[in-house]
Design a protein around this nucleic acid. Sequence first.
DNA 1: AACGTGCTTTGATCTATGTCATGACCCCTT
DNA 2: AAGGGGTCATGACATAGATCAAAGCACGTT
Lengths: 238, 238
Amino acid sequence: MNIPAFNNKDCGSCPIRHQAVCSRCEQDELAVLDSIKFYRSFEAGQPVIWAGDPLDFVASVVVGVASLSQTMEDGRVQVTGLLLPSDFLGWPGRSAAVYDVTAVSDLTLCCFRRHPFEELLESTPNIGQRLLQMTMDELDAARDWMVVLGRKTAREKIASLITIFVRREAHLQKVETPDGTSFDLPLTREAMANYLGLTLETVSRQISALKRDKVILLKSKRRIMVPDFSKLLVESGD
Amino acid sequence: MNIPAFNNKDCGSCPIRHQAVCSRCEQDELAVLDSIKFYRSFEAGQPVIWAGDPLDFVASVVVGVASLSQTMEDGRVQVTGLLLPSDFLGWPGRSAAVYDVTAVSDLTLCCFRRHPFEELLESTPNIGQRLLQMTMDELDAARDWMVVLGRKTAREKIASLITIFVRREAHLQKVETPDGTSFDLPLTREAMANYLGLTLETVSRQISALKRDKVILLKSKRRIMVPDFSKLLVESGD
DNA sequence: AACGTGCTTTGATCTATGTCATGACCCCTT
DNA sequence: AAGGGGTCATGACATAGATCAAAGCACGTT
């Protein structure tokens, strides 16, 4: 039981300082945010909050991946969002979580107490305007994902998911061409299935098929290498 | 070629005055908005804008229904959003449309020139804050729809879509219980299919099945009556 | 009244993906 | 080394929904 530590509590050297909801803030605004912030960490697999539970903070993802999901009465699960570093988590104006939130990998959140944060949204335009921008981007991403869920084949779905991880990895490594990028899948086959609207067996079969067709190379069950990104893009259907 | 007219250009008696992006505005703020606004109307079936085309306004839907959609290279289409009266259309901060926008029924938009509107977002908190609230609600709605696309059966999808229309109709008529609500489907079978990630044949078959099972009654191919809303909800899977 | 067009329904058949079942692999504990 | 839990791969089979095809219906036009 090792809770991942995050010891760097200084905004000045925060890894998401210039992408997160606080990115437009000046020193004085940052000081106010600092007074209502605290960090929380979660182990991979642990729940952050369940839908309907009271939630008195909002947060930025600092390190790791979180998922938003909904579960139907009979147990069917759909993941409706992946939150990567700098993404915003929370529902200003609501006192309870709307969706289940789970730490997919080890996760560190920079949390802000909800009430004072809501006051800052009214009083500090740089925060509200940045959050509006981020929320509109998330909405476009959600709409793009609907095409994946509604119209793509299983193979295209898997390829689409892998492109997300490749792009993220290339971005993190500041590489301009993503050819040859390799990385660890942060999701289990089951979690991928729940994000893609498939079963885990189909996910497994399609990954095997992409491997057989040399679109991806598997160094281990989790570690993937993409030799030719454009080939992957063709397989993803867009 | 009869473009639907909308002659009421006075915000004071605008039907969406208290739900739209302008809902929090005071008289003086409304006067500024008024100076950058104009109305546009579209016939059912007409395109409003294509993805990628330059778009120099944002808008509120005043009357009618618009759809957002994406088309894949091989022609597969996914509708990623329905915009009903008071919903916001547009991409502040972007000079081009992100998705195809189509008038599903006869449609009237209250348009604001984009550049001055963006300035208002900076200078008039009541507008930016309302837009943030609306965008977060849209994002939650998009995530709810992902469950429909990813995890529901064809029958559940149809039932889910009908509940949306029933709720809207009951809301418009200010009826508290939606039992017995009747209304015209604003979408063709094909448009429903594109929203639900199905083919039009499957849509047609499932509507026939729900009719056979007395979940819905069809007065004509388009006009629907829902005798027992709770029965419909059960069929929708949530 | 006849015709054409867009929308819808329905039938027959096919297929991608789900379901069920088994075994492999890997890592941790004893 | 043996056992056990979590994860993953793969085969055999079932089925929901897609595809292909035909025809019905509601219209506006000639």
